Simulated scan of single mutants.
Amino acid sequence: MISGYNPLDTLPPSADDEIKSQELLKVLNEQNTFESDQRMEHRKHVLTRIEEIIQLWVLEIYEEKFKIKASQKLGTFAKLYTFGSYRLGVCTPLDDIDTSCICPEYVDRRADFFTRFPSRLEEQKGIELVINVPNAFVPHIKVFIEGIWMDISFANLNQASIPENLNIFDDNIFFSFDQLSLRSLNGCYVEDAIMRLVPQAETFRTSLRFVKLWARKRGIYGNIYGFLGGISWTILTAFVCILYPTASPSRIVFRFFFLYENRKWDKQAVTLFSQKEQNKQIIDYTLRRNQYIDRIQLEEKMNQDQKPGNIASEINQQENRNKEADQEIGTKIRRQLGNRYCTCSSFNVQTQACIQIK
Rank of each mutant, 00 (worst) to 15 (best):
A111L: 15
P134R: 00
D108K: 07
C342Y: 02
E261N: 08
V198N: 12
Y81T: 07
N303E: 13
V198Y: 04
D171Q: 10
F273G: 00
T351F: 08
V107N: 00
I68Q: 14
S181G: 08
D170A: 14
Y260N: 07
S176G: 15
D37S: 10
E191L: 06
F175Q: 07
S250Y: 01
I127L: 06
E328T: 13
V270S: 01
L59M: 10
I141P: 04
E30H: 13
N262Q: 05
R340C: 04
L197Y: 03
I315E: 03
N172T: 11
P134N: 01
S85Q: 05
E64Y: 09
K217H: 10
R335G: 02
E23V: 01
D294M: 11
I194G: 03
Q268C: 10
A136V: 03
K217Y: 03
I127E: 03
Q159G: 12
E146D: 07
V253F: 08
G229W: 05
T237N: 08
I2K: 15
S345I: 10
W57L: 03
I315D: 05
A201G: 05
I19V: 12
S161R: 10
D96M: 02
P308M: 06
F114G: 08
Q278C: 10
Y5A: 08
F113T: 05
V349S: 10
I329E: 04
L259P: 00
A269R: 15
E300G: 01
W149G: 03
V211L: 09
T237C: 13
F177S: 04
A238I: 09
T331R: 09
I152Q: 05
N156R: 12
A15D: 12
N165R: 14
L236I: 11
S36A: 03
F137C: 04
K142R: 13
Q318F: 11
V133S: 02
Q200C: 12
I333N: 00
R110L: 07
D151H: 02
L121Y: 11
K73M: 07
E314A: 06
L185P: 01
S161I: 14
R205M: 13
N29W: 01
I242V: 09
L59N: 10
K332L: 09
A353C: 14
N156P: 00
F227D: 14
I224F: 09
P7W: 11
F257R: 01
T10V: 11
K307E: 14
L11T: 15
T82M: 03
N316W: 01
N310D: 12
E202Q: 12
P134Y: 01
A201F: 08
N322T: 14
K44W: 06
D16S: 14
F210T: 09
K267C: 04
T331G: 11
N223T: 15
P104V: 08
P93A: 06
V133I: 11
I235H: 04
Y81F: 15
S3L: 05
G147C: 05
Y62I: 01
N158M: 09
K307D: 13
A111M: 14
E63Q: 09
I231V: 15
R263I: 12
I19R: 10
Q159S: 11
A111F: 05
G75E: 06
S85R: 00
G126A: 10
L182G: 04
Y106H: 12
N172V: 13
R110C: 01
E164C: 07
D17A: 06
C101G: 02
L88H: 02
D192A: 06
